[in-house]
Amino acid sequence: MSENLTFRFNVEGDDFTSAGQASVQVKKNLRQLGLDSEIIRRVSIAMYEGEINMVIHAGGGTAEVNVCEDYIEIILEDHGPGIKDIEQAMQAGYSTAPDSIRSLGFGAGMGLPNMKKNSDTMTVESTVGVGTRIVMRIMYKEGCV
């Protein structure tokens, strides 16, 4: 693969009936490319958590998935409220999700930890009042950064 393959999605904010659609589509696309199922699973989980966070916490955003030679890259960008304390947000169990969202099963504060766990590299850039940009890479093989 010399040419990178890119998938782009708009993620609607506050729409819980179609939430996760982009991730489900990416999973389908990656399956068609014949990628290893464990890699696909890690990409799916990492992307889903990021997608849902944009729906719940940021009023929507965009997702881009690049299929590269050695890794898959997921770029999530939103113009939501931003994250004041990233370190705190990354902690398992930390959540600001309102009760209405918790009743749907969200708000365990496990999304960002799941993204970290399922990706090989993850960077979170966020500015309060401006938005959040998260880049995750999932390597096909260990040691191919």
Binding site: K27, R41, Y48, G105, F106
Partner: peptide, 15 residues
Amino acid sequence: IMSNVNVVAVASLAD
């Protein structure tokens, strides 16, 4: 015991 539509996406993505 969760029954909203989001369980379907989770089931699908978690295989």
